[in-house]
């Protein structure tokens, strides 16, 4: 069984192919599709390679944040000063995906469209309240990332649709952290991951936003408020109580349900504690100002800590 390979040169042609072929599959960075092809388990009749379509790899600042075209590589999200400036948590999380070879090839759109429950980037996209742009021959629609993951390896991407961009709001002021735990080899799929952002809900309350990966059949988002005067232990307790009913692990060679639940609690506790501790006593309420290029930290200084 061989699929036909198409290399359209404009978006219209892509969308026509997605609408007009039997069982099309978008070929983005190819890091997932290539494996499925090699294993002979890909059922698609047509592969639509979107690498030659102009504009899909643009990464630009927007009035409220940034916009990443679907073909922007994970490595660019990890290293680009714009992402470091407007959404440092996002840069940190993209930097934890797989390895540099994969990150240099895999695309932001393909990554979320893959829909795997263990992916890292959705955890940060969830807490940042990103928006997915979906295009089809019928037009463009936008889906909040918090409504994008609809089931086990299922997303909101409909028949004939292509993820064309991610719109990410500027990261609110406050502390942020990402924790990712594997149970076997260090580079293996995680068994638990958590992206956490602590921000001001009002003058006396903080909001803890939590994006969970690998701990349920889909990436999961939850938020909880804690008094600004609370300790890091208070924050951790509140966060654990909030995630507890949402953790629903799938057992496999990496561990049973009990083990993954255990590690999920550690990932959440570690990330919440780090983010809470990282949050200034007085969080500026005004919107974050865009730093001029002169004041941007070189991205190396912002790279993840071990």
């Amino acid at each position: 069984m061989t699929a036909a390979l198409h290399r359209p040169r404009d978006l219209g042609a892509v969308l026509d192919l997605l609408a007009g072929t039997d069982d099309p599959m978008v070929f983005g960075g190819g890091t997932a599709v290539q494996i499925l092809l090699k294993q002979g388990v890909l059922a698609a009749t047509d592969l639509v390679d979107i690498a030659a379509v102009p504009g899909l790899a643009d990464l630009v600042a927007t009035p409220g944040g940034l916009r990443a075209g679907t073909m922007v590589t994970l490595r660019r999200m990890e290293t680009d000063p714009l992402v470091h400036d407007r959404a440092p948590l996002l840069a940190q999380v993209y930097g934890r995906v797989a390895n540099p070879r994969v990150r240099n090839t895999a695309s932001v759109g393909g990554n979320i469209a893959h829909g795997d429950y263990r992916l890292d980037p959705p955890t940060a996209l969830l807490v940042l309240d990103a928006r997915v742009e979906l295009s089809s021959a019928a037009g463009v629609r936008h889906v909040p990332i918090r409504e994008f993951f609809t089931g086990f390896q299922e997303t909101a991407v409909g028949r004939g649709e292509l993820v064309t961009a991610l719109d990410v709001p500027t990261q609110p002021r406050g502390g942020a952290a990402f924790s990712k735990l594997s149970s076997l080899a260090a580079n293996d799929w995680p068994v638990a991951s958590a992206a956490v952002l602590v921000t001001a809900a009002d003058d006396v309350t903080r909001e803890i936003r939590i994006g969970l990966g690998a701990l349920a059949p889909t990436p999961v988002y939850v938020a909880v408020t804690v008094a600004a005067t609370g300790s890091d232990d208070d924050a951790v307790d509140a966060a654990l109580a909030a995630v507890e009913p949402l953790i629903d692990p799938l057992p496999d060679v990496r561990g049973g349900v009990g083990h993954k639940r255990r590690l999920g609690r550690v990932a959440v506790a570690d990330a919440v504690r780090a983010a809470w501790t990282d949050t200034p006593r007085d969080i500026p309420r005004e919107p974050r100002e865009e730093a001029s290029d002169d004041h941007r930290l070189p991205f190396r200084r912002l790279r993840r800590r071990r």
């Binding site: 494996i35 294993q39 390895n99 076997l184 080899a185 260090a186 580079n187 293996d188 799929w189 060679v253």
Partner: peptide
């Protein structure tokens, strides 16, 4: 064999 692919079989990487 339930982990007979390199997606599931565990080998030391540089991080191990």
């Amino acid at each position: 064999i339930v982990n007979g692919t390199l997606l599931d079989y565990q080998l030391p990487s540089i991080h191990d």
